[in-house]
């Protein structure tokens, strides 16, 4: 179980972005999360995946809080794939960065083998996001946080990617936290949907 226990965060000495935030995602469960822009959803996602330390509270993954030198069991997929892919690498190399599970999954994501020899600048955002997702779903991944994962993609690619991800998640019993503004999408993919402002006693400045 992925447990967020009373975390709080603010930048420098600014206003609290959120305080005492609680949230759980069970293995194999898909939780949809929505909320206003600038409310702190992305910061929470980064804390959950270990990119940032919470100022208070803790994240407990399957009963543990330390996974230092190993791959983090919670992986985050960002909205813009261009930033999370080294522009000097061929895609082949990107796939060696994590232990990518099974080739059938790459096919299901719509990744073509020829693309492995390309540089990021030779692929479009949609293609790059497929690679970023494949990498995030390495064999060590237990939970996936999809922060506006398909917002920049067209509807067909979005459907294709989510079908592949949901199928793999079901097979490997991976828990997913999907963050999106698209209420239709969340309703379609989630077992339950929650409002970000309901998770915390104090939520950040509204846009």
């Amino acid at each position: 179980m992925l447990e967020v226990k009373g975390i709080s965060f603010r930048y420098r000495k600014g206003q609290w972005l959120f305080k005492d935030l609680h949230l759980t995602v069970k293995p194999g469960e898909v939780v949809g999360l929505f909320g206003y822009s600038g409310a702190g959803k992305s910061t929470m996602a980064q804390i959950m995946a270990g990119y940032k330390e919470p100022l208070e509270g803790e994240i407990i993954v399957d009963g543990r809080t330390d996974y230092d030198s190993n791959a983090h069991p919670v992986q985050l997929v960002w909205q813009h794939p261009e930033k999370v892919i080294n522009p000097k690498w061929r895609m082949k190399k990107l796939m060696t960065e994590a232990t990518v599970s099974d080739p059938a999954f790459l096919t299901a994501l719509g990744i073509k083998e020829e693309w492995l020899n390309r540089y990021p600048s030779e692929l479009s955002g949609g293609e790059l996001q497929r690679f970023a997702i494949a990498r995030a779903l390495a064999s060590s991944t237990k939970y996936l946080i999809a922060d506006e994962m398909t917002t920049m993609l067209d509807a067909i690619t979005q459907a294709q990617i989510w079908h592949a991800v949901l199928k793999l998640a079901a097979q490997r019993n991976i828990g997913i936290l999907a963050i999106s503004h698209d209420a239709h999408l969340l309703r379609r993919i989630s077992d339950r949907t929650i409002d970000f402002s309901g998770l915390t006693s104090c939520s950040g400045p509204f846009d």
Binding site: G50, S69, A71, H72, K83, V84, N86, R135, S140
Partner: peptide
């Protein structure tokens, strides 16, 4: 500081 280095770290790369 690049995001892709952060991702690498979270993927357990030394």
């Amino acid at each position: 500081e690049a995001e892709y280095v952060g991702v690498s770290r979270q993927l357990g790369r030394s």
